[in-house]
């Protein structure tokens, strides 16, 4: 199987405080990897290193074994074209309609014509049950709808890898399901996904692999079954115990 993403001994500190301490991670295409771990363990930082929003201090990150995100000559706009990211707080553009949010990237970055971008966007919105919201504005949508628009906006760039950073953490519990359904649907299409999440049962359902991060290191990883039901490390057990309570 091809390796879509390979993180190789990545280190990062903020203001002298180490946040990532030698992360190794390899993700094959069509795989879904879940990152779990306490808040502050470095999940967001790791995801942001992968699309170049954060620059690493040491180590390298390879896309398709051919493009090194961390190399100083790499054009990060090229990286971001190929890697989609969705944030906890949606971050839709409030001054644009849903359709414009979704077509902006394809038009300005991929130089698609307005009509072509629009057609593709409408197809995607329809697939995620948002066809009737195309002309609405973000502040007219529920949190769950906004987050699904954010997913569609990232997908419109036709990425080869999707990063999800706790995308249901800011949602009303009633709205979590619809967003998770969208992720499951995406997995069904064969998308490669790395997601930081606190939804353990969902991770168990869709993740091919679960990695437990603790203080900037991957302490334990394996199939969802292994890590979530039979963790080997005491810290993993403690962490999971807090969730199952």
């Amino acid at each position: 199987m091809e390796t879509r993403l390979r993180v190789d001994d990545v280190w990062k500190s903020w203001d002298g405080v180490p946040v990532l301490r030698g992360i190794d991670l390899s993700v094959a295409s069509h795989q879904v990897v879940a990152l779990i771990g306490a808040s502050g363990s470095g999940k967001s930082t790791l995801l942001r290193c992968v699309n170049g929003l954060v620059s690493v201090d040491a180590g390298s990150i390879w896309l398709d074994e051919s493009l090194d995100v961390t190399h100083e000559k790499t054009n990060l706009d090229d990286v971001r074209r190929r890697v989609g990211i969705v944030f906890q707080s949606f971050n839709l553009f409030p001054h644009m309609s849903v359709l414009d949010n979704v077509t902006l990237g394809p038009r300005k970055v991929l130089h698609r014509s307005r009509d072509l971008a629009r057609e593709a966007a409408l197809t995607l919105l329809d697939r995620f049950g948002l066809a009737d919201k195309a002309n609405g504005y973000p502040d007219q949508l529920s949190g769950g709808q906004q987050q699904r628009v954010a997913i569609v906006r990232a997908l419109a760039m036709e990425p080869e890898l999707m990063l999800f950073d706790e995308i249901t953490s800011a949602l009303d519990p009633m709205l979590v399901g619809e967003v998770l359904d969208s992720v499951a649907e995406l997995k069904a299409t064969g998308m490669t996904i790395v997601m930081a999440t606190h939804e353990m049962s969902f991770a168990r359902e869709v993740a091919d692999r679960v990695c437990f991060l603790s203080a900037g290191q991957i302490l334990e990883q394996g199939t969802a079954e292994q890590v979530l039901t039979d963790p080997q490390e005491r810290l993993t057990r403690d962490f999971l115990a807090r969730f199952l309570r």
Partner: peptide, 10 residues
């Protein structure tokens, strides 16, 4: 907002 925009490759 800047982060979201740069993430799209703008």
């Amino acid at each position: 907002q800047r982060m979201a925009s740069r993430s799209l490759g703008l």
